[in-house]
Amino acid sequence: MSEKTTVAAVEGLLVADPSAPRLLGSRCKACGTYYFPAEHTLCRTPTCSSTELESVELSTEGVLWSYTSANYKPPAPFVAKEPFEPFAIAAVTLEREQLTVLGQVVPGVGVDALKTGMAMELTLGTLHEDDEQRYLTWQWKPVGH
């Protein structure tokens, strides 16, 4: 069987490079505010209103703000594995950007292994796959896991 190609499940949000996964956002050149998903039209800081926004890669480590679990199968457009396996979801605050990003936690790490304030890092996981491709999204995992 030939190797499937991997692609980001949604264009423009992440670099789907397994060796160096990154989230793609933007930053206002005038006031330094970050945006994820990226904002390129107008800085949303009401006192700034700059139109000069640059693409940036966001920090790949942050602090766990809170966490929960999905114990029941979410509805479409989520493509759930059959049989459904519950997973944890983390809210991670990136220090430099001062923004919090949600995401699934890697398989095998449940809520019992998580604690608010712990260091988390970005990784990639397979969201779903078809005959040719694997569709990747970002996931969070405890640093060093």
Partner: peptide, 26 residues
């Protein structure tokens, strides 16, 4: 609204859970 369901399976109760856990830890 589409992105959160598709990319992470995040439902409304996900947010309720996050806020509840935050109260516990804080």
């Amino acid at each position: 609204d589409w992105l959160r369901f598709y990319l992470h399976g995040i439902t409304n109760p996900t947010y309720f859970g996050l806020w509840a856990r935050r109260r516990m830890d804080l």
